[in-house]
Write a protein that binds this DNA or RNA. Structure first.
Length: 677
RNA sequence: GGCGGUGUAGCUCAGUUGGUUAGAGCGUGGGAUUCAUAAGCCUAAGGUCGGUGGUUCAAAUCCACCCGCCGCCA
């Protein structure tokens, strides 16, 4: 029976680029959607940019453009990045849309009619300089408990204390630097506790995974508190009807963006939104990260219930991405944007890698570059692509480009492939992609063993027809494997479909065989991933983040509290410091690097030894200026392989980069090779 | 700090309701091959299942405490 399904991914916020962390969710969702379509189900995938709120307003102001201009631009960038990764939305909309306003107002009215809207005054920080209310995260000051300076308005990073922003000592706006004043303002609250019973019923009905449910239980026991859904102007968002200068909090209208995107699609495609969203005919699933569980497991269903809308069948919660076992880091170059990735690597690699590690739980997923390279090369290329590559060309080159029929031995192999269907389908359906991939890889192993056992390369001259039978079996095996992998690897699948000259493969094709047909010349299905390319991508991610880090948020404003553009690192002991072996070096040679406009290739004379170092100082120094100079270098830095060669150290310099780079020099008398203490 | 999640071979992960000698892939060593993208096949080595204590005939699995990592505290 054909199912009808609506799927959403969380809406990315419109003030930053898509990065490989975001992609865990969009790829997880896209694979599921493609899987449903492969199974012949009708599946609609909706998303949008989340556009409202203070950060967007401030960012637009900094860039000297309107919020509307900013969100339009960012939406285009986001969609470009998603498309680059093969993520196919049926509609990618915006929360700054007429549909979203309409649904927000309707849901608010629904809650009001149910008596779930209450008002009360709260005290909040107001900046008279910028004439705006300050969210807690924009207020900084000295921690009332441990006196640490420059802590955020809600908690202290140094001692971990929690407090109210009013308790901060010497509070200041992180935007203007001015001291805020405390003013009273009436806010509008949604009484979440009115929906506790209904929410609990939802949990009982299997709305979330068990791990998430435990967390829910904790929240229920703590008691559901009223939710502040209003913000005072100026605020980039929807005005609240019947109020003066009050706007819906961004988190109220963000998930409503799912509905808006769906409505917009329905209107453009002749579908009845009420039927699709509310009719019960369609299943509805939301994919989200565990950081926004609270909003999607409590507020969102509660507001829908308030307005009489249906809630989702299930929430699929996933964990975060770590890179090489750690949080993504700009300084380590592991904060990799989708755009940067696509400039260096094939998106199918990441799709395969994530799929090979995704499970239904909320565990974090680790992207280890070493593992990434091995896995892509061993499985994707060595097992799948190579299986086709070692058999199909023999048919096109030596057997007239035609597959024949399959014999008994071939049928046994193919039967094993067919028999795996139910388990693979079940694994995809339950988001256990890693299990599906394990099964598929094991099948590919069997296929490769089959090829080795039948040695078509040694029989082809003596027994061409027998060999054709063997190779026909392999082609059929490749076809089945491709079907199983298609949700994960759409590009790979498209190449196989072209080679076989067949219409898009579906799961139903598992029941059929491919015999007595011509095939087209073989095109390589996937290239090996070069680990140097990964290294270059990481290197580039480091370079990109430097200017951003050194650009002050608001250049004109002079902060009252002194702050370094680059904050101090945590304390380092003398032992830590002694690990860094600094040496005086004389620049023996310097030359420009072809193909890199920031790099100079330096040969450093350290007395007894010479080192080759690539330094990102070409914008600031010409090679001629450098030869003969004494500099300080990190002599025991782990060598790094770059596109242009190995860099075996680093010369010390200050400055934000670009033209503003200032090399450290040594007073005369210092000798190359001397250690700096 | 409170709470939730998590910790299994060098790496990434499976381990069903507690039940023989704890598995897979990658990586590493050895072997036989050479059709194929230095891919594929055969084979070997590798683990006190975070720690301690407990329940049990039996614990990676259940319980308590501790340690590490991730997150939430609206």
């Amino acid at each position: 029976m054909t199912r009808k399904i609506v799927v959403t991914s969380a809406l990315p916020y419109a003030n930053g680029p898509i990065h490989i962390g975001h992609l865990v969710e969009y790829l997880q969702t896209d694979i599921w959607v493609r899987f449903q379509k492969l199974c012949g189900n009708s599946c609609l995938y909706f998303c949008a940019d989340d556009t409202h709120g203070t950060p967007v307003m401030i960012r637009a102001k900094q860039e000297g453009i309107t919020p509307e201009q900013l969100i339009e631009r960012v939406r285009g960038e986001h969609l470009r990045d998603f498309t680059g990764f093969g993520i196919e939305f049926d509609n990618y909309y915006s929360t700054h849309s007429p549909e979203n306003r309409q649904f927000s107002e309707r849901i608010y009215q629904g809650a009001k009619d149910r008596g779930s809207i209450v008002k009360r005054g709260i005290e909040q920080a107001y900046c008279e300089e910028d004439r705006m209310w300050l969210p807690d995260r924009y207020i900084k000051g000295t921690c009332p408990k441990c006196q640490a300076p420059d802590q955020y308005g809600d908690s202290c990073d140094v001692c971990g204390a929690h407090y109210r922003p009013t308790e901060l000592i010497n509070p200041y706006s992180s935007l203007s630097g001015k001291t805020p004043v405390w003013k009273n303002s009436t806010h509008i609250f949604f009484r979440l506790s009115d929906y506790e019973t209904q929410l609990r019923n939802l949990m009982d009905a299997g709305y979330v995974q068990p791990q998430v449910r435990n967390k829910m239980e904790e929240w229920f026991q703590a008691g559901l508190k009223d939710w502040d859904i209003s913000r005072d102007g100026p605020y980039f968002g929807f005005a609240i009807p019947g109020e003066t200068d009050k706007y819906f909090y961004v988190w109220l209208d963000a998930p409503i963006g799912y509905m808006a995107s769906c409505k917009n699609y329905c209107d453009r495609n002749g579908l009845d939104f009420e039927r699709v969203w509310n009719g019960g005919e369609y299943e509805l699933y939301h994919f989200i990260g565990k950081d926004i569980m609270y909003f999607h497991a409590l507020f969102w269903p509660a507001t829908l219930l308030a307005a009489g809308y249906r809630t989702a069948n299930k929430l699929f919660v996933h964990g975060f991405l770590t890179v090489n076992g750690q949080k993504m880091s700009k300084s380590k170059g592991t904060f990799i944007t989708a755009e940067t990735y696509l400039r260096h690597l094939d998106p199918e690699y990441l799709r395969y890698y994530y799929a090979s590690k995704l499970a239904p739980g909320v565990d974090d997923l680790d992207l280890s570059f070493e593992d990434f390279v091995f896995k892509v090369n061993a499985d994707l290329v060595g097992k799948f692509a190579n299986l086709a590559s070692r058999s199909v060309p023999m048919i096109t080159k030596k057997l007239g480009g035609r597959v024949g029929r399959i014999d008994e031995a071939g049928r046994r192999l193919l039967a094993a492939l067919q028999a795996a269907k139910d388990s693979i389908v079940a694994d995809y359906e339950s988001l256990n992609y890693s299990a599906a991939v394990r099964t598929i890889v094991a099948l590919a192993d069997e296929c490769n063993q089959y090829v080795d056992n039948h040695k078509p390369w040694s029989t082809i001259d003596a027994d061409p027809e027998g060999t054709r039978t063997v190779l026909t079996t392999v082609v059929n095996a490749v076809r089945y494997l491709t079907i199983y992998l298609k949700p994960i690897l759409p590009g790979f699948a498209a190449k196989v479909e072209t080679c076989l000259e067949v219409p898009p493969l579906t799961i139903a094709d598992i029941a059929t065989v491919f015999e007595d047909r011509p095939i087209r010349p073989f095109e390589r299905l996937a290239e090996r991933v070069d680990k140097d390319k990964v290294a270059v991508m990481v290197e580039e991610s480091k370079e990109q983040s430097q200017p951003a880090a050194s650009t002050p948020a608001v250049p004109e404003a002079a902060p009252v509290v002194p702050q370094l553009a680059e904050p101090l690192e945590p304390v380092c002991t003398i032992e830590d410091f002694s690990k860094v072996d600094l040496r005086i070096a004389r620049i023996a040679r310097a030359e420009a690097v072809e193909g890199a406009d920031k790099l100079l290739k330096l040969e450093l004379d350290l007395g007894a030894l010479n080192k080759q170092v690539f330094a990102g100082i070409a914008k600031a120094y010409t090679p001629e200026q450098l030869v003969g100079r004494l500099v300080v270098c990190v002599a025991n830095l782990q060598p790094r392989k770059m596109r242009f060669g190995v860099s075996d150290g680093m010369v010390l310099a200050s400055g934000p980069g670009g033209k503003d780079v200032f090399l450290l020099a040594a007073d005369s008398g210092a000798q190359p090779g001397q250690r700096v203490h």
